[in-house]
Design a protein around this nucleic acid. Sequence first.
DNA 1: CTGAAAGCGCTAACAT
DNA 2: ATGTTAGCGCTTTCAG
Lengths: 351, 351
Amino acid sequence: MDDASHQHPVHPLPPGRVTLQQIAETLGVSTATVSLALRASPLVAEATREKVQAVARELGYVYNRSAASLRTARTNMIAVGVNDVVNPYFGEILAAIEETLAGSGHTVLLGTYSDDPAKQDRVLETLKEYRPDGMILCPANGAGGDALLRIARAGIPVIQITREIEGIGLDVVASDDVAATRLALDHLFGLGHRRIAVVGGNDTMSTGRNRRLAYRAFLAEKGLAFDPALMVTGLGTRDTGFAGIQALLDLAAPPTAAVCMNDLIAFGVMMGLRQRGREAGRDFSVVGADDVREAAMWAPGLTTVSTHPSEQGRRAGERVLVRTVNPALPPARIILPPTLVVRGSTGPVVP
Amino acid sequence: MDDASHQHPVHPLPPGRVTLQQIAETLGVSTATVSLALRASPLVAEATREKVQAVARELGYVYNRSAASLRTARTNMIAVGVNDVVNPYFGEILAAIEETLAGSGHTVLLGTYSDDPAKQDRVLETLKEYRPDGMILCPANGAGGDALLRIARAGIPVIQITREIEGIGLDVVASDDVAATRLALDHLFGLGHRRIAVVGGNDTMSTGRNRRLAYRAFLAEKGLAFDPALMVTGLGTRDTGFAGIQALLDLAAPPTAAVCMNDLIAFGVMMGLRQRGREAGRDFSVVGADDVREAAMWAPGLTTVSTHPSEQGRRAGERVLVRTVNPALPPARIILPPTLVVRGSTGPVVP
DNA sequence: CTGAAAGCGCTAACAT
DNA sequence: ATGTTAGCGCTTTCAG
């Protein structure tokens, strides 16, 4: 009787894939042994382990993580959701996360949503179906907490990064927005600036809200009047900075300095200044935020408040792994202290 | 008799996850019906479909892709392997790939390997185990074709992007290196430059090799002597450019212009020039390659040969999906024509 | 239009 | 130290 012709009554899937089973049959051992041997378990004899691994290599065996995941309910994937990977800030965060996770055998599943809450919800829903062991997310501008909470309730650890939906009780890794704002404003104040604009941000995300509140608190503290015309709302793009500085310079009483929500905005401001025949650091002072690599490369170099993006990524990676092991941990807010980096784009006020 | 206490003799996995089975039981239908209903199959009655979807939502059901993948041998994941996501060139490629794939229901699984062939091999081996439906890879500098071929032989479509291991018969999406080099050199030659350096690249990857050959061919064609001192070897980083231009300016007969392997190198060259009190476009001409977003933002703007990174990403994404559907397609080389973008960093030769 | 049954490839009890 | 067995959650024949 020809066994081979009978053992697979239907075979709709592409044949030829090597499985544990086949290794087991080739060697006349059980699949359990092969499974253990491939994972170098001490339960299996040295000699068998070597034989199994040799045959596996010979047959071109490739471990099937889908199958293992179904059994173990772990995927070794961590989903990362950010707005935009071209933005160097998110690029640095993503790179740091990827590097941290790779070190402990985890792989990044990536989703992006361009600061669009509806798209964010769709993307996160999909990522969830892959059953990642955890997720690291930067909430889209204006997004509510529902999507994140649904994920957490499905048993997947969620780490918020950079921005936070307040009060939903999920881990956060971010930079201290209030401290960052104060660092920038203190620096400019010390240089003699009194009319200081804030460019970018809005009140629909935590960073914008916190920093704008800190700005108003600072003004109040120094006895300076708040002028709404000095607060330019906008997303964190070069365009926001470029357009923003034009409007500010057209004011009857223009500012002498600007604090920007991020470095990209600051680059836009510096370009806009140059177009108006002015030079950052000489005629006008500009402070950025984040300290992306590019900030040091500009001429003049950009004075900025570093929010340590790589460090944020690393910490978020570490945190998600911790939560993977111990899901019951109480929520943590890991708020990194920002640092002022003084370069050439700021200088004493000119009358 | 209490059924609930007997139906699961062992239950080592965390309980409480909602499955198809549970939806089926709640409604008194079969899992097959639920499965079809959730995917909106026309085989199932409108009314049942609605009931099923309502219950699914109510119970907080989350589709388990690991389970589906095990059954269907498709994961809807595409693995992307690049050297470094902080590099804006790869950032743009990655973003374009992600966007293209998301449009057709595929998710990106990310791996990076910092131009290290050994790390590349490890990363690719891991990515392979997730059984992505396809892979888009930029080979590490100096890597051989074995790793890529092993993946292809395991039945996973492989698309090489930007760089290529020649002669292994796998799809490629890239820019025309020879044309790019000619575009840059013709531009400089037309401006009167005769001593033109080439900064960055090496002979262990296709782009470097091709462009350096094209450089020598151009010199020969124009009857210019080849001076090895004008060919600076190095990776595609700002540092390579910064150090490279210093060495070039120290030469007894320094060049009057430089063609760089990519924009990052060109930025480094421009910084190095500035440090020596020279200005790109006035005292020395610099041409980059790739046209990353940042190139337009410099002052002066960088003249560069665009290799259309977003377009490469988009095409690679489309190609991998095509191959997913039809794996037997003959290998294609999709070579995009580069474009010269003239900005301020080049000018007539100064004596 | 719906149900029954088998099985994707792996791991974890448990038994030997 | 190794084998037996069951089952993770889904999709797909095939029957009705």
